[in-house]
Simulated assay, not measured.
Amino acid sequence: MLGDRIISRINASPQRRITFAQFMELALYDPQDGYYAKKAVDIGAQGDFFTSPHLGTDFGELLATQFAQMWEILGQPVPFTLVEMGAGQGILAADIIKYLYKNYQSCFQALEYVIVELSPGLKQQQQLLKGLAADKVSWRSLEEIADNSIIGCIFSNELLDAMPIHLFLLENGQLGEIYVSTSNEAAFIEIVSAPSSPRLAQYFDLVGVDIAQIASNGSYRSEINLAALDWLSTVAQKLQRGYLLTIDYGYSATRYYNPMRSQGTLQCYYRHQHHNNPYINIGRQDITAHVDFTALERWGDACGLQKLGFTQQGLFLMALGLGERIAAISSNTGDLNHLLQRRDALHQLIDPQGLGGFGVLLQCKGLTSQEISTQPTGLSC
């Protein structure tokens, strides 16, 4: 059992404790029993959660439209490389490739589609994409992608929210880290001690947050995603010329570390129910936290990335033509139930209280001043 092996790991660790980031990495990514390592991860309408691609092909098709424009802005390079980070079940990749083939044939001919997927259980995507432009799709690790080699776009959809996070507690003006340990009474308990890394305190300088101010009303608990910064450093090195597109749920740092949000954003998902206890259903539930987009922007600057824009997913998709797709439904004479389901799916993509409120961050590297001045359509709202 994964829980027992985590307990053994804790007992073998110095001071019999591990960081929450270590706990979360084991719970989600243990090669044998981690949530994302299983052969059939519960993603989709009947599973633990669903993502934008599960609502139909529109999300992928509109992204394909944006990628085709990026190809034009970059001067139609050959190859034009799309690197999808964390491709899940491969649904989004299939939708993008099919739409480029059908509507942007020249871009498709230049296309090289690379998938970086850490989760063995999600590599079922290889079966879905097996007969689809097999010569266009390849699977690589980040280490297998040479530095300064990608001309195109590296992108992710709901990737960073599942990266292992550090938990911290602010109390009496002091920054402490929350560790995971065990006791005779409970399999897992939390203890607070000195931070495991000076990077935790440095993080607040990066995002411009005064920890004394956010904890002025008492104790304050939240998260820091150092793994996202490490990931950003790596992908920035891989990009020679082009874009980094990050879509996820999250906030700016001032909203994320608002004094009123004193319990952070950590959530667990199990069979479409959400709660905040990561110490149950070990290996059988998703564990997530919101993304701090300010950290991505500022750390991106340090990594040689330039911010081109930040918007909400709803506005991003509307600028790319989702509004026209919604309007076209009213003039369609097809099956009423199907049309109503499709309209509902499209509205979910732009619902500001749901998927439509996700953040869309676009950064670039190696572009000329003229290329930078040509704003991608998705950011025109």
Rank of each mutant, 00 (worst) to 15 (best):
T254Y: 13
M85L: 09
S149K: 07
Q126E: 10
L100H: 02
V78L: 01
S183D: 07
T182W: 12
A162R: 06
F358L: 05
Y101R: 12
L322M: 07
G366Y: 01
G334R: 10
L129V: 11
Y99K: 03
V207P: 02
H275Y: 12
Q15T: 01
E25K: 15
S156K: 04
T182M: 13
G264H: 02
I329F: 09
Q312K: 10
Q285S: 10
R325N: 11
N172R: 05
Q69M: 09
H275G: 04
Y35P: 06
P164W: 02
T81P: 03
Q69Y: 12
A134W: 12
I178K: 05
M85H: 14
F293Y: 05
L361V: 14
L128W: 08
G309R: 12
K98T: 00
L322C: 14
G366S: 06
A236T: 11
N281H: 13
S233Y: 01
R17I: 10
T246N: 00
I154R: 11
F59P: 13
N11L: 14
I154H: 14
L296R: 05
Q66H: 05
G176K: 13
A212Q: 05
A40Y: 15
Q353D: 09
Q213T: 00
I372D: 00
D33E: 13
S262D: 11
A64K: 07
M70D: 13
G152M: 02
Y269S: 13
G323E: 10
Q174H: 03
Y113L: 03
P376K: 02
L379D: 03
R284Q: 08
D335T: 06
E297M: 03
Q22V: 07
D344S: 04
Y270K: 06
Y203C: 05
I91S: 15
E190N: 05
I18W: 03
A319E: 00
L346N: 15
G250K: 01
E144N: 06
Y269I: 07
A133C: 14
D161P: 08
Y220C: 04
V83F: 03
A302W: 09
D351F: 14
N281D: 10
Y101M: 07
G88D: 01
G173D: 08
I18G: 05
L245H: 11
A162Y: 13
Q213L: 02
I18N: 01
T311P: 10
G356V: 08
Q105S: 11
W299M: 06
T234A: 03
Q124W: 15
L349F: 10
G3Y: 15
S193G: 09
I97P: 09
Q273P: 11
Y36M: 13
P164Q: 08
K136D: 07
S141H: 14
G250F: 06
M163L: 14
T377Q: 15
P198W: 00
G86P: 01
D48M: 06
L118P: 07
S8W: 06
H274Q: 08
S252K: 03
H347E: 15
E171H: 11
G250T: 06
T265Y: 06
T377G: 08
D301P: 04
Y279F: 08
G86K: 00
A215I: 06
D135K: 02
A187P: 14
G264R: 03
K39W: 13
G88W: 03
S219W: 15
L362T: 10
L62M: 04
N184E: 15
G75C: 09
F316L: 02
S330D: 08
L160F: 11
D30C: 10
E117Q: 02
L317K: 12
F23G: 13
H274M: 04
H290L: 00
R5S: 13
V235G: 01
Q237F: 03
G90T: 03
S119F: 11
